[in-house]
């Protein structure tokens, strides 16, 4: 099989969705989603608004409970008890659309909070590593600032550093650039690209098709809670024969042009 030849098939699955179903009361949001993410892979999830992308992502770290199906993280089914979920969450980083930095702590305080409070690391070593991570996202000089004094793009980069401080095996991004002014989107995507190049396993919900095309190993298109296409970005984003995929892509291209206008 050609899959074996490219070597990636040998990498273990870090994350497997197996027929994941989620409904709010009567309304089905996810209708049997199945796909997997291998170690080191970058998978972008795209799809129209309300298609269930955020819900899918939030099921991975148990912020949302699903109704049926299975999610396997590093080979084991997600636990249901809060206590064991907390342990799984230590290994899964999440970046939110609205950053969700802790406003009562400094930038560095945000980054060391997880390692110190959750992993029980010493303050000194957590700070040293926190500063390294801030340097990595280009914000070492802001360590003593409060999040409110940072631009949106800077806040999101701190949020990425905060997630990385836990040394996660998997990073989840839920529209990490959607709340940003257009001129700040690039700096955050830049950090994400760098992470991808470092070999981080990433599951990214995004509307940035250009980014998906350049960085993703695979793109999954979600529509009305179903995977309607999945594969390498060139296949899915450029040559899809599926009319629903084409319709969605036309929609985004049009949106994209709107969003880009103020940049010039």
């Amino acid at each position: 099989m050609s899959m074996l030849a490219n070597g990636e098939a040998l990498a273990p699955d870090i994350l497997v969705f197996d027929g994941v179903v989620k409904s709010y009361g009567e309304a089905p949001v996810l209708q049997g989603v199945s796909f997997s993410v291998k170690a080191g892979e970058v998978v972008c999830v795209v799809g129209p608004s309300g298609s269930g992308k955020s819900t899918l992502l939030r099921c991975v770290n148990g912020l949302e409970k699903f109704t049926a199906g299975r999610i396997l993280f590093e080979g084991a089914e997600l636990p249901t008890s809060e206590r064991s979920l907390a342990q799984i969450r230590q290994r899964i980083g999440m970046v939110f659309q609205h950053f969700e930095l802790f406003p009562h702590m400094t930038v560095l305080g945000n980054v060391v909070e997880g390692p110190v409070q959750v992993l029980g690391e010493s303050k000194a070593s957590a700070r040293a590593r926190g500063l390294e991570l801030l340097a990595k996202v280009g914000l070492e000089s802001k360590q003593h600032e409060r999040p409110a004094n940072l631009s949106g793009g800077q806040q999101q980069r701190v949020a990425i550093a905060r997630a990385l401080a836990m040394r996660p095996d998997l990073m989840l991004f839920d529209e990490a650039t959607s709340a940003l002014d257009p001129q700040m989107v690039g700096e955050v995507l830049g950090v994400m690209k760098q992470l991808a190049d470092d070999g981080m396993t990433m599951l990214i919900v995004t509307h940035e098709m250009g980014f998906a095309k350049r960085v993703a190993d695979r793109v999954v298109v979600l529509d009305q809670g179903q995977v309607i296409a999945s594969g390498p970005p060139s296949d899915v984003l450029e040559n899809s024969a599926n009319p629903r995929v084409r319709e969605f892509l036309q929609q985004v291209r049009w949106d994209g042009a709107e969003a880009e206008a103020p940049r010039t």
């Binding site: 980083g93 802790f102 997880g114 997630a163």
Partner: peptide, 23 residues
């Protein structure tokens, strides 16, 4: 306090009581 704050704390792996007390 926004729900997202608690979720960010939980996403770091904090227990619910720690998320409440710290965040």
């Amino acid at each position: 306090i926004r729900k997202g704050q608690r979720e960010a704390a939980l996403a770091l792996g904090m227990t619910r009581s720690k998320a409440f007390l710290r965040i």
